[in-house]
Amino acid sequence: MKDFLDMGGYAAYVWPAYAVTLIVLFLNIAWARSALARAIAGARRRLGAQERGT
């Protein structure tokens, strides 16, 4: 296990590279979801305003 974590001396480069990539993957999931949630909330507001207007 220690050998694996050590990555043949390249640990300082391999693990940060994997960490950055995983962070970008998860951030993308969070951003996409919040963009959709915001768009749905905005559409609800517009629809509500339209219905009150008519």
């Binding site: 996409a32 979801r33 963009a35 959709l36 915001r38 768009a39 749905i40 905005g42 559409a43």
Partner: peptide, 9 residues
């Protein structure tokens, strides 16, 4: 997912 948001907007 993002496309749905953009289409709604």
């Amino acid at each position: 997912v993002r496309l749905r948001a953009e289409v709604l907007q």
